[in-house]
């Protein structure tokens, strides 16, 4: 049997909103250690890696490892039926055809059950090696979302250039160009407002706005985002999910032809 309970469905609601633009379906790998998802978008340009540790759940039981293929569109619809304060329980039996989502109101007066059919999926796992990145930028997630949105008006791609002076985001198109520079913050009252740059070597990479604008749907999950970059390798854009885990997005850079 598999059963995982979160005291508040808000986290799971936000996770679904953060992946639904990129993934229409995905396999949820459930084991003693928690729930993991690794899936590429249809174009194989980006990858979502989600990790929810079992100790972050209020209750977690997984008698045997399960791979459950889920339709993300349907799952998003189901999670939208939960209030943020509702308790959410995911339940499946061994060799399941279905997964059950149970939402219980804080007063326990309302109990809703939604059953979703599982789908058979071909697993395509990418092996991602541990990488030391030339630049790691930590910055407010809302600021990153704002920059992606603002620069998307100027072109289809955003160039991120990181040096010891700071990080520069730029976009250019037929009607003009724009650039936004962020310096490392000297002193901040609140850690979540800091811009922190850890640079070994300067990096300049270009990425499609479309995907970055999908990644920033994770902004409600965490006040800070971590961008890891090295020359000629995919960007890693990471958001922590409270004390329970993280979501990482990988995005292949654009190259000059």
């Amino acid at each position: 049997m598999f059963e995982a309970r979160l005291a508040q469905s808000a986290i799971l609601k936000k996770v679904l909103e953060a992946v639904k633009d990129l993934l229409s379906e995905a396999t949820f790998e459930c084991s003693d250690s928690g729930i993991m998802v690794q899936a590429m978008d249809n174009a194989h340009v980006s990858l979502v890696s989600l990790n929810l540790r079992s100790d972050g759940f209020d209750k977690f039981r997984c008698d045997r490892n399960l791979s459950m293929g889920m339709n993300i569109t349907t799952m998003t619809k189901i999670l939208r039926c939960a209030s943020s304060e509702d308790t959410v329980t995911l339940r499946a039996w061994d060799n399941p055809d279905n997964i059950i989502f149970i939402f219980e109101s804080p007063s326990k007066e309302k109990l809703a059950e939604y059953e979703m059919k599982l789908i058979n999926m071909d697993q395509e796992h990418l092996g991602i090696p541990e990488t030391m990145y030339s630049c790691v930028v930590k910055m407010p997630s809302a600021e990153f979302a704002r920059i992606c949105k603002d620069l998307s008006q100027f072109g289809e791609a955003i160039t991120i250039a990181c040096s010891k002076e700071g990080v520069k985001f730029s976009a250019a198109g037929d009607y003009g160009n724009a650039n936004i520079k962020l310096a490392q913050t000297a002193e901040v009252d609140k850690e979540e407002e800091a811009v922190c740059i850890d640079m070994q070597e300067p990096v300049k990479l270009t990425f499609a706005c479309r995907y970055l604008n999908s990644f920033v749907k994770a902004t409600p999950l965490c006040a800070q985002v971590k961008l890891s970059m090295s020359a000629d390798v995919p960007l890693v854009c990471e958001y922590s999910i409270g004390e329970i885990g993280h979501i990482r997005y990988y995005l292949a850079p654009k190259i000059d032809d």
Binding site: S46, L47, P234, K254
Partner: peptide
């Protein structure tokens, strides 16, 4: 115009 890379050019299928 820069060309979009594919993720599978960087990581291998496991």
């Amino acid at each position: 115009t820069p060309v979009q890379n594919d993720l599978e050019e960087f990581y291998t299928l496991a």
